[in-house]
Design a protein around this nucleic acid. Structure first.
Lengths: 132, 132
DNA sequence: CTCATTGCAAATGATTTGCAAGAAA
DNA sequence: TTTCTTGCAAATCATTTGCAATGAG
């Protein structure tokens, strides 16, 4: 757990982070809420959203966004790519070394100051590819 | 313009496609609506959304989605990457040969049947990188 | 004629926010 | 205490949808 002087260490925050880090699936805010509410029956969905947002901004977790789908969260900060099932929305880690596409061209690219890039794969997950 | 037996060639559809293909900026639905409404004062935003959706599904244009930002549309179907300004949201084409990251591994990747991948760059556009 | 399409307005749905009560430090 | 957080509910906001009227083929 991180200790930021301005952020208080609440039970809700602890449990949210703890449960997220326990998972390898990449839950949506609602999905994580459903898990956390088992330990903290009074917690609200708004609190989950607020904490996921704060944890993302402080760099403790990462937010995964795929087009217009619901955002998903990942407690693993190690650089890695993701693959998303176009049928059920499931997201998995890709077990391959992440690619560095910026070979050399770090600073000026199309007149832009390049800050980074993202690679995402999509396809049919093990379950969905059979049940067609 | 495509002619699908089930799709009618309306003035609205024509103008929407025509104006989109004229642009190299990648407008949002509202942005394109503002342009189209100059030629068709009675058109509704809903019609723009419906046509952009239909044109995307029939493969005439492509929809670009960046995280939770508004979707943007591109009349250019040639495979290419995009770079997005994290400050103003502007999106530009990347003038470099698109990458094929799936070298060999086409069919089974993490147990998934891989359908494709997306690469997106982000940074500060020419205007925003100076005005900091 | 038929039925895809439109304009309009209301509905969605994920995410955000205002506010008063509650709890870290 | 101080002020960050929470729970709750209402508000956002891009996008979607229902419906009766319109128009393409």
């Amino acid at each position: 757990m991180k200790e930021h002087p301005l952020h208080r260490n609440t039970k809700q925050r602890q449990v949210i982070l703890e449960e997220l880090q326990k998972l390898t699936s990449h839950p949506t805010a609602v999905g994580l809420y459903r898990i956390v509410v088992r330990r903290l029956p009074k917690i609200s969905l708004g609190t989950v959203y607020r904490n996921l947002d704060l944890l993302t901004k402080t760099g403790v977790i990462q937010k995964l966004e795929f087009g217009s789908e619901e955002a998903r969260f990942d407690g693993n900060l190690t650089p890695h790519h993701h693959i998303r099932c176009v049928k059920c929305g499931r997201v998995d880690d890709v077990h391959r070394p992440p690619l560095d596409l910026l070979g050399g061209v770090k600073d000026d690219f199309n007149g832009y100051h390049v800050l980074g890039h993202r690679v995402e794969f999509f396809g049919l997950c093990p379950k969905c590819k059979t049940s067609l």
